[in-house]
Design a protein around this nucleic acid. Sequence first.
DNA 1: CCCGGAACGAAAATATCTTTCAGGGGTGAC
DNA 2: GTCACCCCTGAAAGATATTTTCGTTCCGGG
Lengths: 317, 317
Amino acid sequence: MKETSAPPGTVPQGTPPPQSPHPPSAPAPPAPAALAAKVRTLAPSMTRSMQRVAEAVAGDPAGCAALTVTGLAGLTGTSEATVVRTARLLGYPGYRDLRLALAGLAAHQQSGRAPAITTDIAVDDPIADVVAKLAYDEQQTLADTAAGLDTAQLGAAVAAVAGARRTDVYGVGASGLVAQDLTQKLLRIGLIAQAHSDPHLAVTNAVQLRAGDVAIAITHSGSTGDVIEPLRVAFERGATTVAITGRPDGPVTQYADHVLTTSTARESELRPAAMSSRTSQLLVVDCLFVGVAQGTYETAAPALSASYEALAHRHRR
Amino acid sequence: MKETSAPPGTVPQGTPPPQSPHPPSAPAPPAPAALAAKVRTLAPSMTRSMQRVAEAVAGDPAGCAALTVTGLAGLTGTSEATVVRTARLLGYPGYRDLRLALAGLAAHQQSGRAPAITTDIAVDDPIADVVAKLAYDEQQTLADTAAGLDTAQLGAAVAAVAGARRTDVYGVGASGLVAQDLTQKLLRIGLIAQAHSDPHLAVTNAVQLRAGDVAIAITHSGSTGDVIEPLRVAFERGATTVAITGRPDGPVTQYADHVLTTSTARESELRPAAMSSRTSQLLVVDCLFVGVAQGTYETAAPALSASYEALAHRHRR
DNA sequence: CCCGGAACGAAAATATCTTTCAGGGGTGAC
DNA sequence: GTCACCCCTGAAAGATATTTTCGTTCCGGG
């Protein structure tokens, strides 16, 4: 018999990438998930050998999917012909298609058992669980942050930075890295930006700010004195001030013209709050950056490609 | 060659891939659902023809699962050999197994929800859309990274760091911030760690490493000379070396005992690759950290609370 | 005891997958 | 600018897997 699905040289379907239609679900021949039921239904009409095969298939779809005709025949103590006959009886054109369906079924039921990722990370969690849980938590943090972000405030902050003479960013500890990340990006699109993690230098720099400049403070707790102080100075010098914080009611906001709220996820002993706050802050910072890049596209685009090219030589062949 | 998948009575899988270039080669277990991610990760190292095949496969898993080698080759305008080569590159023993995985994936996503809108960010997108798209993309990046992360390699890296005399981390540019992030965390649980972004200092420090020490290089491109060089030195001094890179076939891996792969998302003009690579790298680093914290819980727990308390009085009332 | 029918498996026949090999195109060296 | 080299690529040979064919065996009934 010829290949059931696609003739080699001909033009079976002229549509390569288009998604296959979902509405017309399983018609009749390819049973999607009701395989076990089908086996029970058809069992009476099967011969002994075929029943053995059907039983094996229904019992361990995943395992059988990994077997060839010969393998399955050997496993069930029958012959290849019997296996093919069974596949036919179950409604498939041949063993090949049964096997394909089997693989799908296996994947399906494997995804069925949802890992309890809502749990906290325990000391004895296997490493695979740690990965799953962390990824899940960070995804959750991102969703929360996006949902809680005030786009009006963000828009105002974007406009301020896009039109600023210079932008100073304050952050210490983990937030300091976020501050640097933002700074790096702004520099890449040709803006003048600087990150400060040294409180003293931050304050002395803040004094130089004036109207038209922007100061951004990043602090999860909203009460980090080392970051509030320079922001206060900048505020009093007339600069536009922005606070990125997880505590929109914290002290830092009293000197902030615009407040961007980051989300606060539950923390645990093994998962310090710094982790999710960092994720959240980075998303906010990314949004800010992209917004600014949009607003200054004329200059941002060439600056981006220039910096990209400048780095090209630093890569080995 | 005998049946690639499984002899009758024995274990189904467990077949390591054909060749391993170096001792630290990822076994690359048959990817279950991480296919799209894998395609993106490996795309840069593919040839044009192979990319066409990979694209078709990633674009329409269900459709491709129904095709034979010849059919897929015809559809993509390539040859059977190329299709098989692509399957190999994606980590499967041959096309047969890729097809099987494809069937599983198809069943998987048919049951799952619709894949969301994946439009690029445009210059004139309203700020709310920017937030939504960025959040979605970063979530996707996290999922891809988690799916593509080799837990065996991660476990090995965790063990190495947990037992290390000292740990050095190399990273420049955006990866430098990730390196600092990791370092900060490790310091917090009482380990000795240092981040280097100055290539010269990194090398001079690497010379001091010896067996029992760990060196970690972080580079998205996998070919950043400034980061490879210190890793090479550390490798030759006998330290355990780890590479965190988006290019598991890049130059950096030749000096790495363990390779942790980050995901590569499509980039656009307004969304530089650095953004998603950073997200991906951070997740990997977080996993590494939590793993190490688990392994050294006896000392990590008190160290964590100590550092927490030490910071408390830096917060304003 | 012999006959008819169905089940079953061995092996041939076919299709499919994998490997090998040689040509073509591009790149770096000189 | 030319040459040599290497890698990509596809055609075809070679190896495997699947399907079909066909003969044998096993029962139950006449």
